[in-house]
Design a protein around this nucleic acid. Sequence first.
DNA 1: CAAAACGTTCAGAATATTCTAAACATAGAG
DNA 2: CTCTATGTTTAGAATATTCTGAACGTTTTG
Lengths: 183, 183
Amino acid sequence: MGEKRLDRARAVFVDGMGTASATSGVLSQLQGRIFAILYLEDHPLSLDEIAEALQQSKSNISTNIRGLVEWHLVRRVAVRGSRKDHYQAADDFWRVMQEIMERRFRWNIRQVIAACDETGRAAESAGATSRAERVFVQRRLQALRAFAAAVDAGIEAFARGETIAPTSLQKIQVLPGESGKSR
Amino acid sequence: MGEKRLDRARAVFVDGMGTASATSGVLSQLQGRIFAILYLEDHPLSLDEIAEALQQSKSNISTNIRGLVEWHLVRRVAVRGSRKDHYQAADDFWRVMQEIMERRFRWNIRQVIAACDETGRAAESAGATSRAERVFVQRRLQALRAFAAAVDAGIEAFARGETIAPTSLQKIQVLPGESGKSR
DNA sequence: CAAAACGTTCAGAATATTCTAAACATAGAG
DNA sequence: CTCTATGTTTAGAATATTCTGAACGTTTTG
């Protein structure tokens, strides 16, 4: 009964991590489940073992595990005596977080900055439009850009292990003279 | 040509924010586009105007805009002389960020904590299993839980506007005596 | 070298998500 | 009270994503 119970516990973990991952915006549900299986195992597992444990095709595991390795959540390790690739859950969560902050959140926030910049450039030469309208658009773009840039800097600092004062973000809100116009 | 150019610029912004939102894990692409349209407009728009601008059905706009309002990214405002609902982009990005941190990230991280707790409880009574195995599982769960709890606390502090030292996260890694075992 | 054991790629099946138009509900106008 | 204008819900269509099994390429084994 002991083994059964432990396996039952593992299933709880796999399910929990799966649903958590599914809503994370970073990992798919299956990736969460793969990680969960590996994390509670004290030895590396092969692709087939994972596929068996999760009742998924080997190809599906193969493609999904790649993402986990890229996020440094899982390591591919060699197991002597076996030709198969084996995988092991990583335990340096801080490293993983840095990776996610850098490659996901910052990358995303930079998209916003880029959009503001591009749009600003495109709007610059909108000749016949009323001056007031152009000014309005540029102000808004500037406000969003400033906020995004502050967030970007904040994430960078955080990822570097530096101290952050979120107050700098709170200040960046509406530009002077703007709030009256929009309502 | 001026108007055309400005509209072209708006399209750039709508597209940019759309793709950024699509990969954000928080907003859908359409939600990003709706926000973009509203953000560059100096007066509130009705559902139909938004639907027209984005070439989407009114019902689709209706359902998607609800999420934007919930995140406080868009406000529903009354426009005198019209019975229609009108919507306006919010400009308090810091508030929005707090909202997202609280209701999305923290909620997500709590799922992980809950999974660890549930699993720990379920594994507790795994009688016949070897003691070493049970200890191993509990240690791992504890390590993940500790990290998640630290992240949770960090986000909370950040959302409150307090200063954060990410160092506290870096310390939480592998528990003593653990790292040797797993490899 | 041939055969087997792998991991990966890919076309299509299975599934989930997003979108639309119609039905519905509610409130205001006449 | 009836008719109209409006936002929401919903069933099904359109689309996108995830998953599988077969095909493929590579490496190891005999």
